[in-house]
Amino acid sequence: ELKPWIEKTVKRVLGFSEPTVVTAALNCVGKGMDKKKAADHLKPFLDDSTLRFVDKLFEAVEEGRSSR
């Protein structure tokens, strides 16, 4: 259920769609990584945008959990 949101956010942050980043982000969430681990995992794909993306990712995960 997070996938469409992650795809949109990747496109907004990077300026283009990147399926590799979407898959990696879903893996981070699925494995229950904390922000630091997720950022380390995604840094090779996102460079300077990593922290901004990870912040948005974790906000969305929290919103998703609290709306259930």
Score class of each variant (00 low, 15 high):
1 E>M: 01
1 E>S: 07
1 E>N: 09
1 E>R: 02
1 E>D: 13
2 L>K: 02
2 L>C: 02
2 L>P: 00
2 L>A: 00
2 L>I: 10
2 L>R: 00
3 K>A: 02
3 K>Q: 00
3 K>Y: 09
3 K>S: 07
3 K>D: 06
4 P>W: 04
4 P>N: 14
4 P>L: 15
5 W>N: 09
5 W>R: 12
5 W>K: 13
5 W>G: 07
5 W>I: 15
5 W>V: 15
5 W>D: 12
6 I>D: 01
6 I>H: 01
6 I>N: 00
6 I>R: 01
6 I>K: 02
6 I>A: 00
6 I>Q: 00
6 I>F: 00
6 I>G: 00
7 E>K: 09
7 E>R: 06
7 E>V: 07
7 E>C: 06
7 E>G: 03
7 E>P: 00
7 E>T: 10
7 E>H: 04
7 E>F: 06
7 E>D: 03
8 K>Y: 04
8 K>H: 03
8 K>G: 03
8 K>W: 04
8 K>P: 00
8 K>T: 09
8 K>A: 08
9 T>G: 01
9 T>Y: 13
9 T>R: 02
9 T>Q: 12
10 V>P: 00
10 V>T: 03
10 V>E: 02
10 V>Q: 04
11 K>Y: 07
11 K>R: 10
11 K>I: 09
11 K>N: 06
11 K>C: 07
11 K>M: 10
11 K>F: 09
12 R>T: 14
12 R>I: 03
12 R>H: 13
12 R>Q: 15
12 R>G: 10
12 R>Y: 05
13 V>P: 02
13 V>I: 12
13 V>F: 08
13 V>D: 00
13 V>S: 01
13 V>Q: 06
14 L>F: 11
14 L>M: 02
14 L>Y: 02
14 L>K: 02
14 L>C: 04
14 L>S: 01
15 G>V: 04
15 G>R: 06
15 G>I: 00
16 F>L: 06
16 F>C: 13
16 F>E: 12
16 F>N: 08
16 F>H: 12
17 S>W: 06
17 S>C: 13
17 S>N: 07
17 S>K: 07
17 S>F: 08
17 S>R: 06
18 E>W: 08
18 E>V: 05
18 E>S: 08
18 E>Y: 13
18 E>G: 06
19 P>V: 02
19 P>H: 04
19 P>M: 02
19 P>E: 10
19 P>T: 07
19 P>G: 06
20 T>M: 08
20 T>P: 05
20 T>W: 05
20 T>F: 00
20 T>S: 11
20 T>C: 05
21 V>Q: 04
21 V>E: 05
21 V>T: 08
22 V>Y: 04
22 V>Q: 00
22 V>S: 02
22 V>L: 08
22 V>K: 03
22 V>G: 00
22 V>E: 08
23 T>A: 13
23 T>N: 14
23 T>D: 14
23 T>I: 03
23 T>C: 09
24 A>R: 05
24 A>L: 07
24 A>K: 07
24 A>C: 08
24 A>S: 02
24 A>I: 10
24 A>H: 02
24 A>G: 01
24 A>N: 07
24 A>D: 00
24 A>V: 08
25 A>L: 12
25 A>P: 00
25 A>K: 00
25 A>V: 12
25 A>S: 01
26 L>V: 07
26 L>D: 02
26 L>P: 00
26 L>K: 07
26 L>Y: 05
26 L>E: 05
26 L>R: 03
26 L>S: 03
26 L>W: 01
27 N>H: 13
27 N>Y: 14
27 N>Q: 12
27 N>K: 07
27 N>F: 03
28 C>L: 05
28 C>P: 00
28 C>A: 10
28 C>G: 02
28 C>F: 01
28 C>M: 00
29 V>G: 01
29 V>K: 06
29 V>M: 11
29 V>Q: 03
30 G>N: 15
30 G>C: 14
30 G>K: 15
30 G>H: 14
30 G>M: 15
30 G>P: 00
31 K>N: 11
32 G>L: 05
32 G>Q: 08
32 G>K: 11
32 G>M: 07
32 G>P: 03
32 G>D: 08
32 G>V: 08
33 M>Y: 09
33 M>V: 04
33 M>N: 10
33 M>C: 12
34 D>I: 02
34 D>C: 10
34 D>P: 05
34 D>W: 01
34 D>Q: 04
34 D>F: 05
34 D>N: 09
34 D>H: 03
34 D>G: 07
35 K>R: 09
35 K>T: 02
35 K>A: 03
35 K>G: 02
35 K>P: 01
35 K>V: 03
35 K>D: 05
35 K>L: 00
36 K>D: 07
36 K>R: 11
36 K>S: 11
36 K>H: 07
36 K>M: 09
36 K>N: 10
36 K>F: 07
37 K>W: 01
37 K>Y: 04
37 K>S: 13
37 K>V: 04
37 K>Q: 14
37 K>T: 13
37 K>P: 00
37 K>R: 12
38 A>R: 01
38 A>S: 06
38 A>M: 13
38 A>H: 02
38 A>G: 03
39 A>T: 09
39 A>H: 09
39 A>M: 09
39 A>F: 12
39 A>Q: 12
40 D>K: 13
40 D>F: 07
40 D>M: 13
40 D>Q: 09
40 D>A: 13
41 H>N: 07
41 H>W: 05
41 H>P: 03
41 H>V: 14
41 H>Q: 08
41 H>G: 03
42 L>G: 01
42 L>I: 02
42 L>A: 03
42 L>P: 04
42 L>T: 01
42 L>Y: 00
43 K>H: 11
43 K>M: 08
43 K>E: 06
43 K>Y: 13
43 K>G: 04
43 K>W: 09
43 K>A: 10
43 K>L: 06
43 K>P: 03
44 P>H: 06
44 P>L: 01
44 P>W: 02
44 P>R: 10
44 P>G: 06
44 P>I: 07
44 P>K: 08
44 P>M: 04
44 P>V: 04
45 F>R: 03
45 F>K: 07
45 F>C: 07
45 F>L: 13
45 F>V: 04
45 F>S: 04
45 F>D: 06
45 F>N: 05
45 F>T: 06
46 L>T: 06
46 L>H: 05
46 L>V: 06
46 L>G: 03
46 L>D: 05
46 L>N: 03
46 L>P: 02
47 D>R: 15
47 D>F: 13
47 D>Q: 15
47 D>M: 13
47 D>L: 14
47 D>N: 15
47 D>H: 15
48 D>T: 10
48 D>S: 11
48 D>A: 11
49 S>W: 10
49 S>H: 14
49 S>K: 14
49 S>D: 11
49 S>F: 08
49 S>L: 13
50 T>D: 00
50 T>R: 06
50 T>V: 04
50 T>K: 03
50 T>G: 02
51 L>Y: 15
51 L>T: 14
51 L>W: 13
51 L>D: 15
51 L>K: 13
51 L>E: 15
51 L>V: 12
51 L>C: 12
51 L>P: 13
51 L>N: 13
52 R>P: 15
52 R>I: 13
52 R>W: 15
52 R>Q: 13
52 R>Y: 15
52 R>M: 14
53 F>Y: 02
53 F>C: 07
53 F>R: 07
53 F>Q: 05
54 V>E: 06
54 V>T: 05
54 V>Q: 04
54 V>G: 04
54 V>C: 02
54 V>H: 09
54 V>N: 07
54 V>Y: 00
55 D>R: 05
55 D>P: 07
55 D>W: 01
55 D>C: 05
55 D>Y: 02
56 K>N: 09
56 K>A: 14
56 K>F: 10
56 K>C: 12
57 L>Q: 07
57 L>H: 12
57 L>I: 15
57 L>E: 07
58 F>Q: 04
58 F>S: 03
58 F>V: 09
58 F>T: 04
59 E>G: 06
59 E>D: 08
59 E>N: 06
59 E>M: 03
59 E>S: 09
60 A>R: 14
60 A>W: 09
60 A>V: 10
60 A>G: 12
60 A>H: 15
61 V>G: 05
61 V>Y: 12
61 V>M: 08
61 V>A: 07
61 V>W: 04
61 V>I: 13
61 V>S: 07
62 E>A: 09
62 E>V: 08
62 E>R: 10
62 E>K: 10
62 E>D: 09
62 E>I: 08
62 E>N: 10
62 E>H: 10
62 E>Y: 06
62 E>S: 09
62 E>T: 06
63 E>F: 08
63 E>L: 11
63 E>K: 10
64 G>T: 14
64 G>Y: 14
64 G>K: 12
64 G>V: 13
65 R>G: 11
65 R>H: 03
65 R>M: 11
65 R>F: 10
65 R>C: 11
66 S>N: 11
66 S>A: 13
66 S>D: 10
66 S>L: 12
66 S>R: 13
66 S>G: 13
67 S>M: 12
67 S>C: 11
67 S>Y: 14
67 S>T: 13
67 S>P: 14
67 S>N: 11
68 R>C: 05
68 R>W: 06
68 R>P: 14
68 R>S: 11
